[in-house]
């Protein structure tokens, strides 16, 4: 363990204005070298910039329908995917662009799906909420709240059946957590010791309804208690905490002990979808999280403490910018799907 890393640990990694020690006793930060840290930063920044661009394209009318941005929550999926193994399967809801990028899907293909073009992952037929990549073990992209959860358990069932050693990472929202099928899923996964991690992304709201107005009980992490599923609350704004908790959960599950619940405390900065007037919370609330807990800004400070120079940071910025510009250029230049596609892919 190098000295410089030790220094960081002893110091809150927050903007100086309002210091709160958010990393506390976090061991993760000590075991990552500079390259690792940069990689996490790049992945989170890519999601942020990609989503900002998607928001712009929506405003221009190039993206239609529903479009749910992941801005603010980047540390959750980047942290989790950074500790998972290639071959682990991933499934989530409609707020899915970040998950796809974190699974290594091509930003061009994702953006082109958002614009509904033939170069998109679903040839333009699925759109923002319905994208898949068998290649990257990403099983969607589901528009029906909670529906991905039993499907995730099914993927876990297939891992166990094939004995392939992989785990299914099943992401769901704090709103989704009240769907009945979630508990049917908890029960089956615990009953049959299935390798699934339920990652509850608690961003405090399901559309306009805050968690306290929708969920009885004090902790979503405890929702698996009756089934004997361990559950932990995690600071989802801190990529190191996410990694630490993710590793523990993955070790547990991969060793055959069954499902695990992680409640990620996170926050979405933007409206529920593009058409959300967001009257249910104040600007001040959003700004406070942004200023105090932003996962990217905080990681940036860690990078700086780790002797990543301003020039390096600038270079990363412009790399990411050009990745996103290329994606959006591709998405706007790609053709509309051929009309013959209308009647394909209904049956095999």
């Amino acid at each position: 363990m190098s000295k410089s890393k030790k220094n960081i640990l002893s110091k809150p990694i927050l903007r100086r204005k309002k210091p709160i020690n958010i990393i506390k006793k976090n061991s993760e930060i000590n075991i990552l070298n500079k390259e690792h840290l940069i990689k996490l930063y790049q992945e989170m920044l890519l999601i942020r910039r990609f989503e900002e661009k998607a928001g712009q394209l929506y405003g221009m009318g190039s993206i239609g329908g529903f479009c749910h941005l992941y801005i603010g929550q980047e540390a959750v999926v980047v942290g989790m995917q950074s500790v998972s193994k290639e071959g682990d399967s991933v499934i989530t809801s409609y707020r899915d662009h970040g998950h796809m990028l974190a699974c290594g899907m091509d930003p061009k293909g994702v953006m082109a799906e958002l614009t509904g073009r033939e170069g998109g992952y679903s040839k333009g037929k699925g759109g923002s909420m319905h994208m898949f990549s068998k290649d990257k073990n990403f099983y969607g992209g589901h528009g029906i709240v909670g529906a991905q959860v039993p499907i995730g358990v099914g993927l876990a069932f297939s891992h166990k059946y094939k004995n392939d050693g992989f785990v299914c990472m099943t992401y769901l929202g704090d709103g989704a957590v009240n769907q009945g099928q979630v508990y049917e899923s908890f029960n089956m996964s615990a009953l049959w010791n299935l390798p699934v991690i339920f990652i509850i992304e608690n961003n405090k709201y399901g559309m306009g309804t805050s968690v306290d107005r929708a969920s009885a009980g004090s902790s979503l992490a405890d929702r698996g208690k009756a089934y004997g599923i361990p559950g932990v609350e995690v600071d989802g704004m801190n990529v190191f905490s996410v990694r630490e908790a993710g590793k523990e959960a993955l070790d547990f599950t991969r060793s055959g002990k069954g499902p695990y619940i992680l409640e990620m405390k996170t926050y979405r900065y933007r409206g529920h979808s593009m058409s959300d007037p967001a009257k249910y919370r104040t600007r001040t609330e959003v700004d406070a999280v942004r200023q105090q807990k932003d996962c990217i800004e905080n990681l940036k400070e860690v990078l700086q403490e780790n002797k990543v120079t301003d020039q390096e940071l600038k270079n990363i910025d412009s790399e990411i910018k050009s990745l996103v510009t290329n994606a959006s250029d591709f998405a706007l230049e790609s053709k509309l799907p051929d009309e013959n596609e209308l009647l394909t892919d209904i049956y095999l």
Partner: peptide
């Protein structure tokens, strides 16, 4: 409507 799940792409949606 056509006997297909509704596609997202603008041109296909119109056709469906």
């Amino acid at each position: 409507g056509l006997d297909v799940p509704l596609p997202y792409a603008e041109n296909l949606e119109k056709l469906a």
